[in-house]
């Protein structure tokens, strides 16, 4: 629980930093983002295939969450 709390607080501080409360400036300029825009850098390329893959895992594992699955039901036996 303490680890989870620490992570949540850390995320909030990062958000505050993003708000401009800390003297940080974006360090990657728009013209440097060619590789980031490449489709192979996406965390969610091919949403239908990803959804299926996550469904296969979710129905056969005890763990769940922090992924991309949505919808209910099992489809398992």
């Amino acid at each position: 629980m303490r680890l989870i709390r620490l992570c949540v607080v850390s995320i909030l501080f990062m958000l505050l930093g993003a708000c401009g409360h800390f003297p940080l400036e974006p360090w990657v300029a728009p013209y440097e983002r060619e590789y980031l825009a490449d489709e192979i850098m996406s965390f969610s390329r091919d949403p239908l295939a990803n959804k299926y893959r996550q469904h296969v895992y979710d129905t056969r594992e005890g763990a769940r969450g922090a992924g991309i699955a949505s919808g209910g039901g099992c489809g398992c036996n």
């Binding site: 989870i4 990062m14 958000l15 990657v28 980031l36 922090a66 992924g67």
Partner: peptide
């Protein structure tokens, strides 16, 4: 669900997701 993704360099991106 709560998530954050961050570009660290012109070739590196990281994300944290909690659910």
């Amino acid at each position: 669900q709560l998530g954050l993704s961050q570009v660290l360099t012109p070739t590196l991106i990281v994300s944290v997701n909690y659910e």
